[in-house]
């Protein structure tokens, strides 16, 4: 048994040594365990050898076409350790949500923690910092600055379009869970930071969780009669039907038709944008909001 343990220890040390050598490899193999970090890496032009829940990533986060040689690591919060090891990474990127498995991951490769969502509730500025740090770490500072600049550009566009409308409505940013419940994004969410950067007021005043959203019955939207409603996908089919029909002839008679925002035509629908994402998602939301042409609420 002692021999076995010794052998194990040796192997461990050997593994570390190999990992140490490999850090000099260019370009280094970086495996992000978090989808938001993965999306930032793609935006930086970094090739990612492995990704968790690959098919889910295509559905929820990325327009990126993942090539077939990207290894699927399994569940996001419980990636397959043996596959992760076999992917032979030089660097593993995680968020604090993985802290319970950090000691295990660290034996595979150098591990860095990047927190987009922190108790300070500033995901956008965190994302900018993370993009720059990743750029520096991976010798892609130019690309990182480009990404930051293009995001700032998108945010500036949003702000300018807001300035043309002195009486722009405060907004509610929601995602429909089913026809009776919504997730409302506010203080602490990436969406909300984009709104702040665009100088758009978020109407939601109720407490939110660590990631900046709260679950509420759809009727809670009645409490904000003067707000515009921004629905971010994916929207369940039954809700989609109702929202699509709301412009034309009314064949349904549900609360959703009588939401003040829907009745007054202050509804905007935006395709899915990963709410736990990073800088690329912020830029996409800013562009979508700009082109959605947010409505005005004249005060009379």
């Amino acid at each position: 048994m002692r021999h076995l343990l010794c052998a194990a220890l040796c192997c461990l040390c050997l593994g570390q040594a190999i990992a140490g050598d490999a850090a000099a490899r260019t370009p280094p193999r970086v495996v992000p365990l978090d989808w938001g970090l993965a999306s930032t890496l793609f935006a930086l032009g970094v090739k990612v050898p492995a990704l968790a829940e690959k098919s889910g990533y295509a559905d929820w986060v990325g327009p990126e076409n993942l090539s077939d040689d990207v290894v699927d690591l399994g569940l996001r919060l419980a990636p397959d350790m043996e596959r992760l090891r076999n992917a032979d990474p030089d660097l593993i990127l995680i968020t604090p949500q993985f802290s319970s498995i950090v000691p295990r991951i660290e034996t595979i490769a150098k591990t860095k923690v990047y927190a987009t969502f922190t108790p300070e509730k500033t995901p956008l500025s965190n994302s900018i910092r993370i993009a720059r740090e990743l750029g520096e770490l991976l010798n892609a500072s130019d690309r990182a600055e480009q990404l930051v600049a293009s995001t700032n550009e998108a945010l500036a566009d949003l702000r300018r379009s807001r300035e043309t409308k002195p009486e722009a409505c405060p907004v509610l940013v929601v995602n429909f869970v089913d026809e009776r419940h919504v997730r409302v994004f506010a203080d602490g969410s990436l969406y909300d930071d984009v709104l702040k950067a665009g100088n758009i007021e978020n109407a939601w005043r109720r407490p939110t969780n660590y990631w900046g959203f709260g679950t509420a019955p759809a009727s809670a939207l009645l409490d904000y009669p003067d707000a515009a409603l921004i629905v971010i996908g994916p929207t369940p089919p039954q809700v989609q039907r109702i929202l699509d029909a709301s412009g034309g002839t009314q064949t349904f008679d549900t609360l959703l038709h009588h939401l003040p925002a829907v009745e007054a035509g202050r509804l905007r629908i935006i395709p899915a944008i990963w709410s736990f994402g990073g800088l690329p998602e912020a830029a996409r939301l800013a562009k979508a909001l700009t082109s959605a042409n947010l409505p005005e609420c004249p005060h009379d």
């Binding site: 869970v177 019955p217 009727s219 008679d253 609360l255």
Partner: peptide
Amino acid sequence: NSMFIWGAGDLAQNG
């Protein structure tokens, strides 16, 4: 996501 709310049995109605 919707199954989690469904499993907890919320009575909220839309009409």
